[in-house]
Design a binder for these strands. Sequence first.
DNA 1: CAGAATCCGAGTCGATACTG
DNA 2: CAGTATCGACTCGGATTCTG
Lengths: 123, 123
Amino acid sequence: MTLERTLAFDPYARECPTRELLNRIGDRWTVLVIGALRDGPRRFSEIARRVEGVSQKMLTQTLRALERDGLVSRTAYPEVPPRVEYALTELGTTLQEPLQAIEEWARTHMDRVLEARERADAA
Amino acid sequence: MTLERTLAFDPYARECPTRELLNRIGDRWTVLVIGALRDGPRRFSEIARRVEGVSQKMLTQTLRALERDGLVSRTAYPEVPPRVEYALTELGTTLQEPLQAIEEWARTHMDRVLEARERADAA
DNA sequence: CAGAATCCGAGTCGATACTG
DNA sequence: CAGTATCGACTCGGATTCTG
């Protein structure tokens, strides 16, 4: 629709939509929810169990945002009780890869971060 | 297939410090500030210029947090007017790589996200 | 130039209660 | 099971002012 959509997205620029995307990625739950879908479709309650501590409200909100951005698909089965499955889209899968790298970084370097923090706080 | 989780830190667990780290990474400015240091040491004002729209307060706050976590080093030169240089530490450099991948993802896929969003909002 | 300190509105988030 | 609706606490972050 908007034809002046330039190909030169630059998050360092003030009004660039990629900033908004970085914010989404950076919110409290997005990374974990996408990670929870990495091995295939999951039900709402499965994701909630996997991502410890997420509230129903925040999980719903996060999934809705991801769905809106085309990163996650939602499939509701007309059964009783209801069953809803969420899955990464192809686009979402391409995002999952770099996010997993971040997750791995956190896993492997957190100890060094904690050490640095202790040193800084001691001084 | 299920991922092996042999490492001690698990962001999916409730009390894991990696959650806090993911939050830091995900805040409004961290990714951009680290990216601004990718090509070498930069002065405070240089970073502020590169990361459009960041306020002095938030830039200071972000840099302090990164310094505390051992990701960025701060060097103040005793001159008038003051000159302060920030640089990625070796640890910070290892984080910059996956962050850059995220940035690249945002640059190259943002158009598809915007399309998906328009479709979702039209419905 | 590089920052510290303060104020304060906007948005985020969680807890709780309710529904098909 | 998979949500929706609402409320209040809390935090984030921008604007402003001041300093060595």
